[in-house]
Amino acid sequence: MILLFLATAYAHEGPPYPILVDHQFNDHKLSVWADPDTGSGSFYFYPEGVNKKEFSYEIIASPQTNPLHIIKGETDSLKLIIPFDQNLMWNVTIRVKEKVSQFTLTTKTLALEVTPPGPNKLEFAIYLVPFIILAFFWAKIILVKQKKKS
């Protein structure tokens, strides 16, 4: 049953982590959380200050080993998905623009480690083995002790 659910188990994503905290620009602050998995790296923007709803966000990413391979994404909302295609260190540039004029308000570049989305079936099976062994020994001890006591 576990393996049946394995495909969907990947949907149980890990938490997005803070990659940028209180980045100051004009009278605003921006914090960004990211869950940079291969396939669908998600970015969440948390602006603070007046007119915080007037921004759009752009992400430009390239692997550190191959700067010419560029993946881009842009959004008016507060969430953006970037389809990372390799588990490597990437340079990620976050650009905040004015929604209407598209004027760039601030730009910040970070190094970001893109991670695999979850365990593959083999890893999953391997990690489950200790639990199976433990469960077997636990049951054996319980049954022996139960027999002794009764």
Partner: peptide
């Protein structure tokens, strides 16, 4: 990011292992 928490590839099987147990 890799230091902020235990990787998902380890946590998810642990989670399922606990439930199975």
């Amino acid at each position: 990011i890799s230091l902020m928490g235990v990787p998902l590839s380890i946590v998810v099987p642990i989670q399922m292992g606990i439930l199975c147990f």
